[in-house]
Design a protein around this nucleic acid. Structure first.
Lengths: 196, 196
DNA sequence: CATAAGTAAACGAACATTCATTTATCTTTG
DNA sequence: CAAAGATAAATGAATGTTCGTTTACTTATG
């Protein structure tokens, strides 16, 4: 039995990410991917049952990596200030150190398979995040509030700044470079909002 | 000279919005649009020079409407608390009362023409927003901070909640319905963060 | 030598766009 | 005031291209 060339399989994933980032979901095609990975289109159908399968598997894998990096060194028993800081650091590190993968994940999240991919990722987050929030409220480190209000204030600003950074420009078209200094400045204000 | 049927032109825009919302950017095609609008594909090329032109014109128009509604009853001389409240009300009203158009605009913003469309819209916002922020800082109603930090805290949470609402679910897949009550609760916290 | 990996070439369908033609409506003319 | 002429609107059918996917075949390895 002939063995599968695992380097080629990895190359396919790498090139798929590049194509998604460079041309977006609508500029991505199986034939283009085969060409840049220097394999036959038919080979893609050995690795994946079809295009949807490829996108979904790639999205789930990227989501899992993002989730894993976000939860690194974090647990639901941390104090609220410490835990939120850890989350912001993990998330910004993920974005800035995995630009291509993070952008590809974003492209997939905005594609027709977005819901599938995010719900596959959510399972890893929910329990630990709920524990974290409940503990923080119990210990009087966090105001009681609906979960969505908490989430939007705790992470909405970070996500907005990261997108500014990626676009290389703020709302008015001004250049903008994300930095630790700016991140901690925003985090302080967010903590101020959330603390009783 | 034969006169152009302006109802058909409007119908084309309406159907284009519907197609974009229903199938996303990659599911949108000129032939599909012609079919649902019950015209010949060739007619689309009388209204628009090509597909890109159609998407860009539609995006700019939707962006202008969004911008207009957001600035209604707002001016840069309002107090910070009053002005931000107005902005949140305008923005949430725009989203909730123009669901299709707002979603179509979002689809275009995440397409290859996103940058073109947003930079065309930005011009209407920048001057009044800068005036507003500067006044607020001068009057000691707003902490001095980089513009991006301000923007991300002032609007990131609202945008995040609106997206929760549109997805009909929060991060964990829980159902979530945006409401005035929840909005004002979040706004209070945001104001707490931004006020000296 | 059996079996899965890998391929080149092809499939029909859908894509954006164009062409040759017809249709409707305005302006000019008798 | 009506018929003729002018012209842009509108069309149905076709263009060549690219799409996702399959088929028939070869290659490499346990």
């Amino acid at each position: 039995m002939r063995t599968r060339n695992e380097q080629k399989e990895l190359l396919v994933k790498e090139k798929a990410i590049e194509l998604l980032v460079k041309y977006g979901f609508e500029g991505f095609s199986m034939q283009k991917l085969a060409k840049v990975a220097k394999i036959s289109p038919a080979t893609l159908y050995i690795y994946y049952s079809d295009k949807d399968d490829l996108i979904k598997k790639l999205g789930v894998e990227l989501g899992a990596k993002m989730s894993e990096m976000t939860l690194q060194g974090f647990n639901g028993k941390m104090s609220h200030a410490e835990g939120l800081k850890k989350q912001w650091e993990n998330r910004s590190n993920y974005w800035l150190n995995n630009l291509k993968e993070a952008s590809a994940y974003e492209v997939i999240r905005h594609s027709p398979h977005g819901q599938y991919v995010t719900s596959a990722t959510a399972g890893q987050f929910r329990p630990v995040m709920e524990e974290f929030a409940k503990n923080a409220i119990k210990n009087n480190e966090l105001r009681p509030m609906p979960f969505e209000v908490y989430w939007s204030i705790a992470y909405g600003p970070l996500y907005t700044m990261v997108k500014f950074h990626l676009e290389g420009s703020s709302k008015g078209g001004r250049p903008f470079a994300f930095s630790k200094k700016i991140m901690y400045e925003a985090l302080d204000l967010v903590l101020k909002a959330l603390t009783p």
